[in-house]
């Protein structure tokens, strides 16, 4: 599989570099931590979009807002907050506020193409919506912070834009119990003492759900900073799982070439 000269060039640069910093649009701030070495960025652009298949393939450097602009015409979207690139969202597992009742980011990534630390290209997944062919490198790549390679291509599941999307909020003590009676709201989140709920779907269903709630008021999307920060990620750097992570790093990047600062911060220099 070839993605053209831009990816070929990146492969060559990766192969000859001793240290590589992977960057996107720097929406998480992670790529301001620069090490010495090359700075590599995935190309951008839409490779294929098939609205009827609910699927889009893009270069990983494509911004999410550009993707959603393309999807808008067919009344579709990808349910990820609109900042940064798709590659960055995948690498940092940026789900946004969408709660777990809905298919969050890892379940919506159908294929990834990656330049490995040695400059070779590897791929996992396929351009279909259901796939258990081989081990699931996609789940590993989502949230890998560039430590397993430079993601250059992503195929995503798209979804129809719901007829209505409405945020509601409440600070009432009864809010939690009420929300738990709702049928699968799109988002439930607490922020500064308020409970925020996103209701989506058929206009009449959303209206009925709002009527069912007591003490809630309509609102805009809460402006929380839900950008994933590596330093805020409360994950253990010891124990058996950490030793598996180190083993994975050793297999995928034996020369400790990729995103050294991040690797070092997470105890993943091997």
């Amino acid at each position: 599989m070839s993605f053209g000269s831009a990816v070929d060039d990146l492969q060559r640069q990766m192969a000859i570099s001793d240290a590589v910093n992977i960057v996107g649009l720097n929406s998480t701030g992670a790529s301001t931590v620069r090490d010495e070495g090359s700075v590599l960025k995935a190309p951008s652009g839409i490779l294929s979009y098939e609205p009827d298949e609910l699927m889009i393939s893009v270069f990983a450097g494509t911004s999410i807002s550009d993707i959603n602009d393309e999807l808008q015409g067919a009344k579709q979207r990808i349910p990820i907050p609109e900042w940064g690139t798709i590659g960055g969202a995948v690498a940092t597992r940026r789900n946004g506020l969408r709660d777990s009742y809905h298919q969050t980011l890892p379940n919506n990534v159908l294929r990834c193409s990656v330049i490995a630390a040695d400059g070779s290209l590897y791929q996992s997944g396929g351009q279909v919506v259901k796939n258990v062919s081989g081990f699931d490198l996609i789940k590993l790549l989502v949230g890998s912070w560039g430590l397993l390679g430079l993601i250059v291509e992503v195929t995503m599941r798209t979804e129809p834009i719901p007829q209505v999307s409405q945020w509601v909020q409440s600070a009432a003590p009864t809010a939690i119990a009420q929300v738990s009676d709702l049928y699968r709201p799109s988002v439930v989140t607490c922020f500064e003492g308020n409970m925020y709920v996103l209701l989506e779907g058929h206009e009449k269903d959303v209206q009925q759900q709002i009527l069912q709630l007591d003490g809630f008021s309509l609102c805009e999307m809460p402006l929380t900073n839900n950008s994933p920060q590596l330093t805020n990620v409360n994950r253990s750097s010891q124990g058996v799982p950490h030793s598996i992570e180190r083993a994975i790093r050793k297999e995928f990047d034996p020369g400790n070439k990729l995103n050294k600062s991040i690797a070092s911060q997470r105890g993943l220099l091997t």
Binding site: P106, G143, P241, E245
Partner: peptide, 8 residues
């Protein structure tokens, strides 16, 4: 338990 999604 880990940075990488070992569960997944």
């Amino acid at each position: 338990s880990s940075l990488f999604d070992l569960r997944g």
